[in-house]
Simulated scan of single mutants.
Amino acid sequence: MKKVYYLSSCDTCKRIMDGLSPLDDFELQDIKTTPITKAQLGEMKKLAGSYESLFSKRARLYKERGLAQKTLGEADYEKLILEHYTFLKRPVFLYGDKIFVGNSKKVVEAAKETIHP
């Protein structure tokens, strides 16, 4: 599977995707206009190892809701990601049985080396 979950209004997502282009054979899913499904999130979790690793603690809603002061479990992370797209750490690249989550230099470089060796 070759897929990218991203936010079209996110400049960081755009910059990373431009840096990894061409992405011609990738399915692109803007998570704001086409929300991720429980099944899609489950597939991401299977590859990433946990819902927490897919969760963005930098999301504005994370701070607004005071979630940093709460103890969250895997079920909480899953529920929150499905509830609002900003809780998904992005972009998420699926490439075969590999997943690349987020925008850290290390993750982007690993994605680049895998997608365009």
Score class of each variant (00 low, 15 high):
V108N: 04
M44C: 15
K63M: 03
V107N: 12
K112L: 07
G96M: 04
F100D: 01
K32F: 02
E113V: 10
H116M: 00
I115D: 05
D97S: 07
Y95P: 02
T37Q: 05
M44V: 06
Q29G: 05
E27T: 12
S50M: 07
A48C: 03
L82H: 03
Y62M: 10
E27S: 12
D18W: 00
T12S: 15
K46H: 00
I31C: 01
R58L: 06
A111M: 06
A75R: 11
R90Q: 11
F26Q: 11
Y95G: 08
D25G: 12
A68F: 04
S8I: 07
G19S: 05
Y77W: 05
M1K: 14
L54C: 03
G73W: 03
A48G: 02
N103P: 05
H116Q: 12
F100S: 00
R60F: 04
K63V: 00
L67F: 05
S53H: 04
L23V: 08
S21N: 13
L94H: 05
P117D: 07
K63P: 05
E109L: 11
R60N: 04
E113W: 05
V107P: 04
L28T: 10
T86W: 08
D30H: 07
T37K: 06
D24H: 13
R65K: 14
L80H: 00
E74G: 09
T37V: 05
L23M: 13
K57Y: 02
L88M: 12
Y95K: 13
L61K: 15
F26P: 10
D30N: 14
G49H: 02
Y77I: 08
K79Y: 04
T86D: 09
I36F: 11
K105I: 10
K32L: 07
K38R: 11
G73A: 13
I115A: 08
Y77K: 00
F26T: 13
Y77C: 10
D76W: 12
E113Y: 06
